Simulated assay, not measured.
Amino acid sequence: MTIPEGDDPATLVSTDWLAARLTSPDLRVLDASWYLPDAGRDPLADYGDAHIPGARFVALDEVSDGRSALPHMAPPLEKFMSRMRRIGVGDGHMVVIYDGAGLFSAARLWWLFRLFGQRAAVLDGGLPKWVAEGRPVTADLPQIRDRHMTPAPQPHLMRDVTEVAQIAKLGQAEIVDARAAARFRGDAAEPRPGLRAGHIPGARSLPFGQLLNKDGTMKPASGLRAAFQTAGVDLDRPVITTCGSGVTAAILNLALARLGHADHALYDGSWAEWGMYPDLKIATGDA
Rank of each mutant, 00 (worst) to 15 (best):
G134I: 03
V161T: 12
P136G: 02
A173G: 03
A165S: 15
A139C: 05
K169G: 11
R159G: 01
G134K: 12
L157T: 07
T162Q: 12
A152L: 14
G125Y: 09
E163S: 08
P153K: 09
G134T: 10
A165C: 06
P151A: 05
V161M: 14
R147V: 06
A173M: 07
Q154I: 13
L170A: 12
P136N: 02
K129P: 04
R135Y: 04
A132P: 02
A173E: 00
L170I: 08
R159C: 05
L123C: 10
H148Q: 13
D140T: 13
Q154T: 12
D160V: 08
G134R: 11
A132M: 03
H156S: 14
R147A: 15
K169A: 14
D124M: 04
A121F: 08
A165K: 05
A168S: 14
Q143N: 13
P142M: 02
D140G: 07
I175Y: 11
G126E: 05
T150R: 08
V137L: 02
A139S: 10
P151G: 05
A152Q: 10
H156Y: 13
L141S: 09
K129T: 07
V161G: 01
R135M: 06
A139R: 00
P153A: 08
I175E: 12
G126F: 04
H148G: 10
G125H: 03
I167P: 08
T138I: 07
L127V: 04
E163F: 00
V164W: 00
K169V: 11
V131A: 13
A152D: 15
L127P: 03
I167R: 10
H148K: 12
L170Q: 11
D140E: 08
L123R: 00
I175V: 06
L127C: 03
P128G: 04
